[in-house]
């Protein structure tokens, strides 16, 4: 049963990850298709986390990745007026795309041969604990929280500084500067006075 579920979830995760990168249909090249495939992939990876009895991280994966980050991506896709942008048009791959594909293939092959080599796991196999004594007390919120607030207290506090910095940075970078940025006519929002070309009288509706 465990093997069946593992192969089911891992195949689905790898296939949906492939759908993010290589569109299954030539019309599905828009980034929103990649985003939907990505959400699917995050759900299957969360299922794999649950099989590794990392319950808290499986929930966080769905909440943070599929919930927050991908919704942010979708917002940005909707904010941008991407219809005229014909980036990634279906064309035969050029030399550099071939080279990129070859490099990615080499990376994957190298990682898999390393991971499946016998001597890779030999130094730590003495400590491998395949069956845990008490699976109820593994990977739950209470024990991870205890670790976070004792052994990893400093990195945990620094994470809050990082998030604050990222928030301020995102606001400053995304702020619209009317002198340098281009605003499409269709998106431009006119004030009442600009639209009607007259002053708003006192007491006017």
């Amino acid at each position: 049963m465990e093997a069946f579920l593992f192969y089911l979830f891992s195949t689905a995760a790898v296939l949906s990850a492939l759908a993010v990168v290589l569109p299954p249909h030539p019309k599905a090249r828009a980034p929103i298709h990649s985003a939907v495939a990505m959400v699917l992939c995050f759900f299957f990876v969360a299922a794999l986390y649950a099989m590794l009895s990392a319950h808290l991280l499986a929930v966080l994966q769905v909440l943070v990745y599929a919930g927050a980050i991908m919704v942010l991506f979708t917002f940005v896709i909707m904010l941008l007026n991407l219809q005229q942008d014909n980036v990634d048009k279906p064309e035969p791959p050029g030399f550099f795309k071939m080279l990129g594909g070859l490099m990615a293939l080499t990376t994957t092959w190298g990682l898999i041969t390393k991971f499946t080599a016998d001597e890779f796991l030999a130094p730590i196999s003495a400590q491998l604990v395949e069956k845990l004594a008490d699976p109820l007390h593994y990977g739950n919120l209470q024990d991870i929280g205890r670790l976070l607030f004792s052994k990893y207290l400093l990195p945990f506090e620094l994470t809050s500084v990082l998030l604050l910095t990222a928030m301020i940075g995102a606001v400053i970078v995304a702020k619209r500067d009317p002198k340098t940025t281009w605003i499409p006519e269709a998106v431009k929002q006119l004030t009442y006075r600009e639209r009607h070309g007259k002053r708003v009288e006192k007491g006017a509706p």
């Binding site: 995760a13 790898v14 990850a17 492939l18 993010v20 990168v21 980034p31 990649s34 985003a35 992939c41 990876v45 991506f73 940005v76 896709i77 980036v87 990634d88 791959p93 795309k97 990129g100 594909g101 490099m103 990615a104 293939l105 990376t107 994957t108 990682l111 898999i112 991971f115």
Partner: peptide, 20 residues
């Protein structure tokens, strides 16, 4: 994990859309 990492590398190297 290696397969997912490799697919991610492929996308970074091959796709031209900044969002993807």
């Amino acid at each position: 994990s290696a397969l997912l990492f490799g697919i991610g590398t492929l996308g970074v190297l091959v796709r031209r859309n900044a969002l993807v």
